[in-house]
Structure formats: C-alpha cells, structure tokens
Amino acid sequence: NQASVVANTLIPINTALTLVMMRSEVVTPVGIPAEDIPRLVSMTVNRAVPLGTTLMPDMVKGYA
C-alpha cells in the first residue's frame, strides 16, 4: 500500500506548507503520494485542512 500525505496539524487556508505540517501514512482513500512531500513544501492550501486529513491534489494550489 502506498503512503499518502496527511496533515500533522490543523493547516489554515492559504498557509504555505512546511515539512512539520505533513506526515506520511497509509490511508483510504489514497491522497497525494508521500514521495511528493518535498515538492509540496512552500505550496499553499486552498482550504483549511484539519489534523489527520489526507491531502488531496485539489487542496494544494499548483499541485494538480
């Protein structure tokens, strides 16, 4: 099973992502692959992402 990116904290809308905000976890449904974490750093989220939420491609500006 592939690990996905999961919010390690509440990420407010329009926040630039940092490494400490994200962790990898095997979850269903599958979200952004964990190997993309380095690429996500400094990208911003377009909605509030609660703790434990899987990051989906449409949640990160410029990812999809």
Results as ranks from 00 to 15, higher is better:
T44N: 06
L19Y: 11
P12E: 09
A7Y: 02
R39M: 09
S42L: 12
T15I: 06
I32M: 03
L40P: 00
T44D: 05
M22V: 06
L17C: 03
M43T: 05
I13A: 11
T9C: 04
I37H: 02
R39F: 11
L40F: 00
A16F: 13
A16M: 12
L51R: 10
E25G: 08
S4L: 01
V6L: 13
T15A: 08
A3W: 05
D36C: 05
L19S: 08
A64W: 03
V6T: 05
L10M: 14
S4Q: 02
D58N: 12
M56R: 08
L55V: 06
V30I: 14
Q2H: 11
V49Q: 02
N46H: 14
N8Y: 03
T44H: 13
P57Q: 08
I13T: 08
N1Y: 15
K61N: 14
G52D: 14
V41M: 08
L40D: 00
I32K: 00
L17E: 02
V41G: 01
T53M: 15
I37E: 01
P33G: 06
V41R: 05
I11W: 01
V26I: 10
M21T: 04
L40T: 00
N1E: 15
A64M: 15
P33M: 10
L19A: 11
T15V: 11
T54K: 04
M21A: 05
L40Q: 00
A7W: 01
G52Y: 05
G31C: 03
A16G: 13
A64P: 09
M43A: 11
N8T: 09
E35W: 06
T44Y: 11
T53G: 13
I11F: 02
V45Q: 01
R23P: 02
A3T: 09
K61H: 12
P33E: 05
R47Y: 09
A7D: 01
M21Y: 06
Y63A: 05
L55W: 01
N8L: 06
M56G: 05
I11S: 01
A3S: 13
G52T: 02
M59I: 05
T18Q: 09
Q2M: 12
S24M: 07
P33Y: 15
A34V: 10
R47V: 07
T54P: 07
R23M: 07
V5S: 04
V20I: 13
P29L: 06
P29T: 04
R39Y: 13
I11E: 01
V27I: 14
V30S: 13
A64E: 09
T9D: 10
T53K: 08
N46C: 07
T54Y: 00
N8S: 14
N14W: 10
P57G: 07
P50R: 07
P57M: 09
D58C: 15
P33V: 08
V6M: 05
I11D: 01
V5I: 14
S4F: 02
G62F: 06
Y63M: 06
V49H: 02
R23D: 04
I32C: 04
P12N: 15
R39K: 11
N14S: 09
I13M: 08
V27G: 03
T54Q: 03
L51W: 11
R39H: 15
I32V: 08
M56P: 01
N8V: 10
M21H: 13
K61I: 15
A48Y: 12
L10A: 14
M56I: 08
N14A: 10
D58A: 10
V41I: 12
A7M: 03
T53W: 08
T28Y: 13
M21C: 04
G31W: 03
T9Q: 11
G31H: 01
A48D: 15
P33N: 09
M59C: 04
V6W: 01
I32P: 00
N14R: 06
D58M: 07
V30Y: 14
D36F: 08
A48S: 14
V27D: 02
P38N: 11
P12Q: 08
K61L: 10
N8I: 05
G62I: 03
N1T: 15
V5R: 00
A3M: 08
V26P: 09
L40S: 00
T53I: 12
V27P: 00
G31E: 01
A7K: 02
T9R: 12
S24G: 09
T28Q: 08
S42Y: 08
E25H: 07
A34L: 04
S24F: 07
M22F: 05
I32A: 02
A48K: 09
V45P: 02
L55N: 01
L40Y: 02
E25W: 04
E35R: 05
G52W: 05
K61C: 15
L10T: 13
R23W: 03
T15S: 06
